[in-house]
Structures are given as structure tokens and as C-alpha cells.
Amino acid sequence: NQASVVANQLIPINTALTLVMMRSEVVTPVGIPADDIPRLVSMQVNRAVPLGTTLMPDMVKGYP
């Protein structure tokens, strides 16, 4: 099973992602692959992302 990117904390709308905000976890449904975490750094979320939420491609501005 492939690990996905999961919010490690509440991420407010328009926040630029940092490594501490994300963790990898095997979840269903599958979200953004954990391998993409380095690419996500400094990209902004377009909505508030609660703790434990799987990051989906449509939540991150400019992804992929």
C-alpha cells in the first residue's frame, strides 16, 4: 500500500506547507503520494485542512 500525505496539524487556508505540517500514512482513500512531500513544501493549501486529513490534489494550489 502506498503512503499518502496527511496533515500533521490544522493547516489554515492559504498557508504555505512546511515539512512539520505533513506526515506520511497509509490511508483510504489514497491522497497525494508521500513521495511528493518535498515538492509540496512552500505550496499553499486552498482550504483549511484539519489535523489528520489526507491531502488531495485539489487542496493544494499548483499541484501537480
Rank of each mutant, 00 (worst) to 15 (best):
N1S: 14
N1F: 15
N1C: 14
N1L: 15
N1Q: 13
N1K: 06
N1I: 15
Q2F: 13
Q2H: 14
Q2D: 15
Q2S: 15
Q2K: 06
Q2C: 15
Q2I: 11
Q2A: 14
Q2W: 14
Q2E: 15
A3C: 15
A3W: 13
A3K: 09
A3P: 08
S4P: 00
S4G: 05
S4F: 03
S4D: 00
S4E: 01
V5S: 03
V5G: 00
V5A: 13
V5L: 03
V5P: 00
V6R: 03
V6N: 00
V6P: 01
V6Q: 03
V6D: 00
V6S: 03
V6L: 10
V6W: 02
A7F: 02
A7D: 02
A7C: 05
A7K: 02
A7N: 00
A7T: 12
A7L: 03
A7G: 03
N8H: 13
N8D: 11
N8Y: 04
N8K: 09
N8Q: 10
N8V: 10
N8E: 06
N8L: 09
N8M: 09
Q9G: 05
Q9P: 01
Q9E: 10
Q9N: 08
Q9C: 05
L10Q: 12
L10E: 14
L10A: 12
L10N: 11
L10R: 09
L10K: 07
I11R: 00
I11K: 01
I11F: 02
I11N: 01
I11S: 01
P12S: 06
P12M: 07
P12I: 04
P12N: 08
P12L: 09
P12Q: 09
I13M: 11
I13V: 14
I13E: 11
I13P: 15
I13Q: 09
I13K: 09
I13Y: 11
I13T: 10
I13C: 09
N14W: 11
N14Y: 14
N14Q: 08
N14F: 07
N14P: 00
N14C: 07
N14L: 08
T15D: 03
T15H: 07
T15N: 04
T15F: 07
T15Y: 10
A16C: 08
A16P: 09
A16D: 04
A16H: 13
A16I: 12
A16E: 05
L17Y: 02
L17A: 00
L17K: 00
L17D: 00
L17T: 01
L17R: 00
L17H: 00
T18L: 07
T18N: 04
T18H: 04
T18F: 03
T18P: 00
L19D: 04
L19A: 06
L19C: 15
L19S: 05
V20G: 08
V20P: 06
V20C: 13
V20M: 14
V20L: 13
V20N: 11
V20T: 13
V20Y: 12
V20A: 09
M21P: 00
M21R: 01
M21Q: 03
M21S: 04
M21T: 03
M21N: 06
M22E: 01
M22N: 01
M22P: 00
M22S: 00
M22K: 00
R23D: 03
R23G: 04
R23I: 05
R23K: 07
R23E: 03
S24Y: 09
S24K: 09
S24R: 10
S24C: 06
E25L: 08
E25Q: 11
E25Y: 10
E25W: 12
E25G: 10
E25F: 10
E25I: 06
E25N: 08
V26D: 15
V26P: 07
V26Q: 10
V26M: 07
V26A: 12
V27Y: 02
V27G: 03
V27M: 07
V27I: 05
V27Q: 04
V27R: 09
V27P: 01
V27L: 05
T28G: 07
T28Y: 09
T28V: 11
T28L: 07
P29D: 07
P29L: 06
P29G: 03
P29W: 03
P29F: 04
V30H: 13
V30K: 07
V30L: 13
V30Y: 15
V30E: 14
V30Q: 13
G31D: 01
G31K: 00
G31F: 02
I32V: 10
I32M: 03
I32S: 00
I32H: 01
I32D: 00
P33F: 14
P33C: 15
P33V: 10
P33L: 10
P33T: 12
P33N: 14
P33M: 08
P33H: 09
A34T: 08
A34W: 08
A34M: 06
A34F: 08
A34N: 06
A34H: 08
A34P: 05
A34L: 03
D35I: 10
D35L: 10
D35C: 14
D35R: 05
D35G: 12
D35Q: 09
D35P: 10
D36A: 14
D36G: 06
D36T: 08
D36L: 14
D36S: 10
D36C: 13
I37T: 06
I37C: 04
I37H: 02
I37E: 03
I37D: 00
P38H: 11
P38R: 08
P38K: 10
P38E: 08
P38M: 14
P38F: 12
P38G: 12
R39P: 03
R39G: 06
R39M: 11
R39D: 05
R39E: 05
R39V: 09
R39F: 07
L40A: 00
L40N: 01
L40T: 01
L40H: 01
L40K: 01
L40P: 00
L40W: 02
L40F: 02
L40C: 03
L40V: 05
V41W: 03
V41G: 01
V41Q: 07
V41I: 12
V41A: 05
S42K: 09
S42W: 12
S42R: 08
S42N: 07
S42I: 03
S42C: 13
S42P: 00
S42T: 13
S42Q: 11
M43D: 03
M43S: 06
M43V: 05
M43Y: 14
M43K: 09
M43P: 00
M43I: 04
M43G: 03
M43L: 12
M43F: 14
M43N: 04
Q44S: 13
Q44M: 14
Q44P: 05
V45H: 01
V45A: 04
V45T: 10
V45Y: 00
V45C: 05
N46Y: 15
N46F: 11
N46D: 12
N46C: 14
N46V: 13
N46I: 15
N46H: 13
N46A: 13
N46W: 12
R47P: 02
R47L: 07
R47K: 15
R47D: 05
R47M: 10
A48K: 07
A48S: 10
A48Y: 08
A48F: 12
A48D: 11
A48M: 14
A48P: 06
V49L: 09
V49F: 03
V49Q: 02
V49S: 01
V49K: 01
V49A: 04
P50I: 08
P50Q: 12
P50G: 11
P50A: 13
P50E: 15
P50W: 10
P50K: 14
P50F: 13
P50D: 09
L51C: 06
L51Y: 14
L51R: 07
L51G: 09
G52L: 04
G52R: 04
G52D: 10
G52F: 06
G52S: 07
G52K: 04
G52Q: 03
G52P: 00
T53H: 13
T53L: 11
T53I: 11
T53C: 07
T53N: 08
T54D: 02
T54Y: 02
T54K: 03
T54V: 09
T54N: 01
T54F: 03
T54M: 03
T54Q: 03
L55V: 07
L55W: 02
L55F: 10
L55T: 01
L55G: 00
L55P: 01
M56A: 07
M56R: 07
M56I: 08
M56K: 09
M56L: 12
M56Y: 09
M56D: 04
P57V: 10
P57I: 07
P57N: 07
P57F: 12
P57C: 10
P57K: 08
D58M: 12
D58I: 12
D58W: 14
D58Q: 09
D58T: 15
M59V: 06
M59A: 08
M59E: 03
V60T: 01
V60N: 00
V60I: 10
V60H: 00
V60E: 01
V60M: 06
K61Q: 13
K61D: 10
K61S: 12
K61T: 12
K61H: 15
G62C: 14
G62D: 11
G62K: 09
Y63P: 04
Y63T: 04
Y63L: 06
Y63A: 04
Y63V: 05
Y63G: 04
Y63R: 05
Y63M: 06
P64F: 07
P64E: 14
P64Q: 15
P64D: 13
P64Y: 06
P64G: 15
